[in-house]
Design a protein around this nucleic acid. Structure first.
Length: 423
RNA sequence: GCGGUCGUAGCUCAAUUGGUUAGAGCGCCGGUUUGUGGUACCGGAGGUUGCGGGUUCAAUCCCCGUCGAUCGCCCCA
């Protein structure tokens, strides 16, 4: 045998229970987003590298180290999308979607990041995405967050997840707060962990969610954003909080919740769980009023979130596999073609049918049992109409009579008699 | 990128301080049995113990490397 080829590191082959969970999450998302009027959008899986490089800032580590970038045959630098937002913004700008006024968009699909895989973190992973583009009002933040909350609720995992909420203020607030943080941590830099010392130079806000024990007291003593908040930014955050309360969405103010990039303004939020180890964020989002302008578009306010499908899938109860209504089994080889005709008839009438390709009736009944079908319809090789069909309910779930009647009414009228058992 | 743990039939796992021919269940294939409510019987195939090197009379077991999985760190758009 030739050498085995294995899947690329950090990718997954989804099947069975895994893909059932995956589908359940996506289907639930599609149902819920329609309740909020979010329209589907689908943008390319790869884009010019500039789409992501420009949105993130050319020099950041994520751009240089964590993107799947390559040259195509024409020599252009392309990148497999590491996020939805930048591609959607590119589409918004390119297609002039301002014409639609406030746009509420939903997307889902694969994303790619070159990272060390761990639980709930893959190199090809999948997200749900929701964005409101063109609205500067707190009500937009409230609506996207409420959408996320209802999604979690309908997935049956709301009790496992907490909404953490914070504000990064407007540009003025953020700059003043950042300056105060740098001053504070610089004054105590000999007490900082080595990692936080690096953050102090590169990304001081990130010190706030440091996991190092020695940083705790310094973080606790760090200046909060509230003292530096402009009245406009304070009013905005107040509006978001009031709106969430009105919408019945519980949240916890989490002053350590920050974002790494400059285009983020005002609201930042994450739905987090303690059930998935260190990769506990299942939905993360915020307001990014500065992004579209940074990418060369008109100054456009926007807010949105993305959710990890794999992570949500790990939290949901096992979705039941697609149940088959009935297995049609010929009792003898001579009844095979009649069984096929009956199966075709039932399927055309909306009854799902399992058929086996080989084996005697006993064997096929065993296979049907293994596949968890709801009932078995035996087809006998006989001219006696009363003995032709035998229906046997298999499951004690109280739906036996219903299955029997569905099968009976879906059969061709020439089958006017059927023996057997059902509940 | 850094550190810990792990890697044995298709799957889940065994195998005495390093010791003979690496086992079981499930699954798969074949047969028997004759009909069906998650459970019958008999048999069979299937492994270079992730891969490569080293130590040893002898390695699934010890050492090094590598690939992969997993947990944490870094990062997190």
């Amino acid at each position: 045998m030739a050498e085995k080829i294995q899947r690329v590191r950090g990718t997954q082959d989804l099947f069975g229970d895994d893909i059932a969970r995956f589908d359940h999450v996506v289907e639930t998302f599609n149902r819920v987003r329609k309740l909020y009027g979010f329209r589907r959008v689908d943008t390319p899986i790869f884009e010019p590298t500039a789409v992501f490089a420009r949105s993130l800032g050319e020099t950041t580590d994520v751009v240089s180290k964590e993107m799947y970038s390559f040259e195509d045959r024409g020599g252009d630098s392309l990148t497999l999308r590491p996020e939805f937002t930048a591609g959607i913004c590119r589409a918004y700008i390119q297609n002039g979607w301002q014409q639609h006024g406030v746009l509420k968009l939903a997307a889902h699909g694969p994303l790619f990041r070159y990272e060390r895989p761990q639980k709930g973190r893959y190199r090809q992973f999948h997200q749900l995405d929701a964005e409101v583009i063109g609205a500067a009002e707190p009500a937009a933040d409230v609506e996207v967050i409420a959408l996320g909350a209802q999604l979690l609720s309908e997935l049956g995992i709301a009790d496992k997840v907490t909404l953490q909420l914070n504000t990064l203020g407007d540009a003025e607030t953020r700059a003043a707060w950042r300056e105060a943080l740098v001053a504070h941590f610089t004054a105590h830099q000999d007490a900082l962990s080595g990692e936080s010392l690096e953050r102090l130079a590169k990304n001081p806000l990130r010190i706030l969610d440091s996991k190092a024990e020695c940083d705790r007291p310094l973080v606790a003593a760090a200046p909060g954003i509230d003292a530096h908040m402009t009245s406009a930014a304070g009013a905005f955050f107040e509006g978001v909080q009031k709106g969430l309360q009105a919408a019945g969405v519980d949240f916890v103010r989490t002053t350590s919740l920050v974002r790494g990039f400059d285009y983020y303004r005002h609201t930042a939020f994450e739905f987090v769980t303690v059930h998935l180890g260190s990769q506990g964020t299942v939905i993360g989002g915020g307001r990014y009023d500065g992004l579209i302008e940074t990418m060369g578009g008109p100054s456009t306010p926007a807010v949105g979130w993305a959710a990890g499908i794999e992570r949500l899938g790990m939290l949901v109860a096992v979705a039941t596999t697609d149940e088959i209504d009935v297995a049609v089994i010929p009792d003898a080889p001579a009844a095979e073609s009649e069984a096929l005709a009956i199966a075709a008839r039932l399927r055309s009438q909306g009854v799902s049918v399992a058929t086996a390709y080989r084996g005697n009736a006993k064997r096929r009944a065993e296979l049907a049992a293994k596949d968890d079908v709801g009932a078995i319809l035996f087809v006998r090789d006989t001219q006696d109409a009363d003995q032709k069909l035998n229906f046997s309910g298999r499951k004690r779930d109280g739906k036996g009579k219903d299955r029997f009647q569905r099968v009976l009414s879906a059969l061709h009228p020439t089958y006017d008699a059927m023996g057997g058992t059902y509940e």
